[in-house]
Structure formats: C-alpha cells, structure tokens
Design a protein around this nucleic acid. Structure first.
Length: 522
RNA sequence: GGCGAAGUAGCUCAGCUGGUUAGAGCGGUGGAAUCAUAAUCCAUAGGUCGGGGGUUCAAGUCCCUCCUUCGCUACCA
C-alpha cells in the first residue's frame, strides 16, 4: 500500500473575493501535492474557507444579506478559483459545515478533559476587525483622539466572560518541540521569530466570544462561540474525517505539512500544536510560512488600486503559465514581485522558447522524417549518453530533492538546465542535416530527444499539469510510466515497436503578448 | 530599544561549514544555424560582492562598526 501524504493550505477568510495571495498559496500547495502523487504517495489535500467571526456577520449585514447565505456565495468564489487553477484538493472544508462543528466541539471537549480550559472574565480593548484584545500599552492614537489597535483598527473597551486556554502550560513543551524538530517551522527566519516569541513567555489565550453567535457553539456553554482560530485550525482535522478517528483520519493524521502565509505562523506554530498536545493528538510534521506577492514591489491595497484578480491573470495568460511563473520566479518562503511584463518574459523564455519549442521541433522532425513512427535507437554515441545522464539525474534526483524541500523555484531551475542541454544537443547533432548524411544516426538522435522530453514533461507536470499531460498524451507515453519511479525505465522501445504514430504536433506553450495597457508605467 | 533577515553584473537573484581567474537567467553586443512557436546554439558583458576597520597564509563567505530596506517583538516619556 502506498504511503500516505497529507498537505493543507490555510483556509481562507471569505469576506472578500480571492486575491492573488490565495491563488499563490493554492498553486504552491497543489504543486507539492501533485509531486507527491507522482512519487506514488496516497495524497490528501485539504483547503477551504473559514467563515465564522464577527467580520463575516458585519460584512453580510452591510450587504443586507443573511450571513450563511452570504458565506455560501463567498465560499463558492474560492472553490471556483481552485477549480479554475487546477487545484487538486481532495476536500474543500467549510467551517460552517455541520460536520466541522462536531469536529471543533470534539477537539474542545478533549482540551476540556485535559483541564486546559477555564472560564474567566476578560476586560480590555477589543478590535472587532482583528478579533483580538489589546493591552492599553499597545494602542496607538488615531485621528481625533481615537484609540486604535497596532494594526490601526478601531477598538472598544469590552468586558466579557470568556473561556481561556492554558497556553502558559505549554511553553516548555513547545520549546522542546522546536528543539527536537528543527524542521517544524520553516523557513528558518520564521522559526527564529517563533522561538523568541515563545521564549518570552506565553499568556493564556482567550478562546471564546459572547458578543456574537456566528460560530461554533462551545459545548455546555451555549452563550459562547469559539474563537475563530480554534475552529479554523480544526478544518485540518475535519477535512479528513475527524471526529471520526478511524478511517481517513487514522491513516492521514498528522499532516505532513501545513502551507500557510507568513502572517499566520504564530497560530500554526504556537497555538495549534498546543491545542493538539492538550487534546492528546499527534502534531503536524512541518509548518511552512510562504512569503507575499508584491505587485511591482508594492503591497497590494485597494487604495493603491493595484489589486489584481487572479482569475483575470489566468484568463489573460493561461493557468499553466501563471502557475509556472509563480513557482519559478518566486523563491518559496520569500516575498516575490510580479507584473504583466515579468510573467510574459518568463513564460515566453522558459516555456514557449526553450521547452515548448524543443518539443515542437523534435516532434515535428519525427512526424515529417519518420512518418510519425517513433524511430529506433541504434547504439549510443557519447553525446547521447551524456544527455541521458544529465537529464536523468535532474529528473530522478535533483528535482525530487528540491520538491521535498519545498524549493519549487530551484526544482524548475534544474529543469531548465536540462532543457538547455537538450537544445544544445539538438543543435550540435543537427538531425535535420543527418537526414541526408546519416539517416540512422538521425533516428537515434530523435529517439534520444524524445525520451528526454518525456522525462522533462513528467517532471514539470506538478507545476504545469495541463500542458504537461497533453504533451505526454501527444507522445503516447503510457499512463503506467507517468511517475518519477517509472519514467526513467525502458518504456521507449516497446512504444517505438508498437504501431503508435504521432499526429501532427501542436504547440502547447503559446508565446504570450503584452497588452498595450500593461506595457507602460514602470 | 531588543532580536533577526537582506544589501553581489543594467534587471531578478545563486553563492553550504572561509581557499584556484565571484556564478546563473533575462536584457545588451558579436557570430553560427535555419528542423522549430523569428524560436535555438556559441562567444561576450571586466561587478571596489552597501561604507569603513579587523582576524587570517587566504574573506562576498568570520569579528567589530556605520548606512539603507524589511520582518518579529518590547517599551517609554
């Protein structure tokens, strides 16, 4: 039985439509999930929407809508985005789902039994927008003597009864966790921040609210709903069946990695493991905080008017192109910058000119000179072996290693290195010239390239699933060998000896053009 | 204020535990080729590796200091 692999994105707060950051996270996570499938792993991939909290209630009310009905609509945009971007999730979990409520309550009960929850009174400055209490000292002065949170959101003095989680109990256990599992929080810079935060001491955490009721009811405390983060994080469990602890949950928990944005590292690297320890559940193996995408180096904001709809980008440039750009151009874990020119330049250079053209010229030569039948290999020259060695080690070793490290941009850098080698090889061997001087040698050269291109297409499949699949289809590469373990095996000769015949090859990586309005303003 | 990250060719960035002439992609320039999506290949670009000081036989790579940008965090009148 194949090994399980469980990965998640953060679940999105859908009080607005998906923005490019949501798309980026989904794409990166999907690439990892697809890679693991091609490694033969049995993958579960959970994403979804985090719909509770006062903000949703207020946003819905402002639009004159019923909260749940509003949440239904907003959540659907996120699901649509995932579908459009070829995100291969296995569950789209909504926190408003009944099953999810049961899961959250089960987790709560487990923490309760451990004695980690207690009722107390909380007085303080509360920000509705941030859903958080602040200390007097943290506040800043706004215009007209108004007090604002450190994030600049309005606060009001609030007194409420609230359940607390004994986070303070877990300081040592968390520090031990970080020490024993250096890879628990990545990248390194995030890990340091968390370490210092926890070393500085932990206060108990307020984990319920009474000021609104749009949330998961606290068991035995009907006036309380859970703090959004408690139930939001629980989607990672409910997405694979919890509170049913047999079946999927037993097989896939804990997560191999939670992919999240760098802004919510604390919730995932401090609160979440503490909750799980309290509930007596195994902890995720890794939490990875990726960076943000900046539009031409600037943060996206409505006031700057540079908010980009990822769906539009996908329509404009294509899903595979967008996926490729994000994962190639941005070093995973760091912030990245994007612009229409950057996308066009990168995609044209790598996909259209280098790889797409390589595939096209090779398949065209076979189609025209071999009548579409895959040519036989008649002994290897040194150059052939050199190319096989290079492509083979890139595909079998370098790319998988980079993917395991969640270094997709480096995986693609290796991939391009192999593509360049193929282009250099085809130019040096010049099969179009061999056609007259040495037809048998021409066939060997074309067969060599065919094999290498198939390997490269497979390796790129997690990043550009649609085009890579079409290319492998065009080439007649059997399903059975479309994985990292088999693509390096000897499948070519049987295929060449079969009556498989290439159709007229069609380009799969069209050159992009920059719309005039995107060309200007630097 | 504390802690941390970053500052390397026009642009985007690689450079692990210090060691031959500091690398890649894109762009620019000069060739070659014409099978292919006017795509490809080859050659090339002489950059005080933010400034200064130090350790060392040897530093982009360690130490100190200063400047700039960013992140986390604390706090004060």
């Amino acid at each position: 039985m194949s090994q399980p692999f469980y990965i998640t994105t953060a679940i999105a707060y859908p009080n607005g439509k998906p923005h490019i950051g949501h798309a980026y996270e989904a794409i990166a996570t999907d690439a990892i999930a697809r890679f693991q499938r091609l490694q033969g792993r049995d993958v579960r991939f959970v994403t979804g929407t985090d719909e509770h909290g006062l903000k949703m209630v207020q946003t819905a009310r402002a639009a004159g809508r019923d909260t749940l009905e509003f949440a239904d609509e907003m959540s659907s945009y996120f699901r649509d985005m995932c579908d459009k971007l070829n995100i291969s999730y296995t569950a789209f979990m909504r926190t408003s789902d009944e099953r999810h409520h049961k899961a959250s309550q089960a987790l709560w009960n487990a923490m309760q039994e451990r004695g980690d929850l207690y009722l107390d009174r909380y007085e303080g400055w509360y920000s509705v927008r941030d859903e958080a209490f602040y200390d007097e000292s943290e506040l800043v002065e706004g215009e007209g003597d108004v007090k604002l949170s450190p994030q600049g959101t309005p606060v009001e003095w609030t007194v409420e009864e609230t359940w607390f989680f004994r986070l303070s109990r877990y300081q040592d256990a968390l520090l031990a966790l970080y020490a024993q599992n250096p890879e628990f929080i990545q990248p390194e810079s995030r890990r340091n921040e968390v370490l210092r935060f926890v070393e500085g001491g932990l206060r108990d955490l307020s984990v319920s609210r009474t000021s609104f009721d749009w949330g998961v009811k606290v068991p035995g405390s009907p006036d309380h709903v859970m703090y959004v983060w408690v139930d939001a994080l629980t989607t990672y469990m409910s997405g694979i069946g919890y509170p049913d602890t047999d079946g999927e949950f037993a097989r896939f928990w804990p997560a191999d990695v939670h992919i999240i944005g760098k802004d919510i590292v604390r919730f995932h690297a401090v609160y979440w493991p503490a909750f799980l320890m309290s509930a007596g559940l195994p902890l995720p193996k890794r939490v990875f905080g990726h960076g943000f995408l900046l539009s031409r180096g600037e943060k996206m904001s409505k006031s700057l008017g540079n908010v980009v709809d990822p769906m539009e980008l996908a329509d404009l440039f294509g899903v595979d192109a967008l996926r490729y750009f994000f994962l190639r151009e941005v070093s995973f874990g760091q912030d990245g910058s994007y612009s229409a020119e950057a996308i066009v330049t990168r995609v044209n250079a790598d996909l259209a000119n280098s790889f797409g053209n390589l595939a096209q010229r090779t398949l065209s030569l076979i189609f025209k000179n071999c009548d579409g039948y895959l040519p036989a290999i008649r002994g290897h020259a040194a150059e052939d072996s050199a190319l096989f060695d290079l492509v083979g080690s890139v595909v079998a070793t370098e790319i998988p290693a980079h993917f395991e490290n969640l270094a997709m941009s480096q995986a693609l850098e290796s991939w391009m290195k192999a593509v360049f080698a193929c282009n250099a090889y085809i130019d040096a061997q010049a099969p179009w010239a061999l056609k007259k001087s040495d037809p048998e040698r021409m066939e060997t050269v074309l067969a060599t390239l065919f094999i290498c291109i198939a390997q490269l297409a497979l390796a790129a499949q997690p990043i550009i699933p649609e085009a890579a699949t079409k290319l492998l289809d065009q080439m007649g590469v059997p399903e059975a060998v479309r994985n990292f373990a088999q693509i390096g095996s000897h499948w070519y000769s049987p295929l060449a000896e079969s009556d498989y015949r290439l159709e007229q090859p069609k380009g799969l990586f069209p050159r992009l053009e920059l719309a005039p309005e995107d060309g200007g303003n630097p």
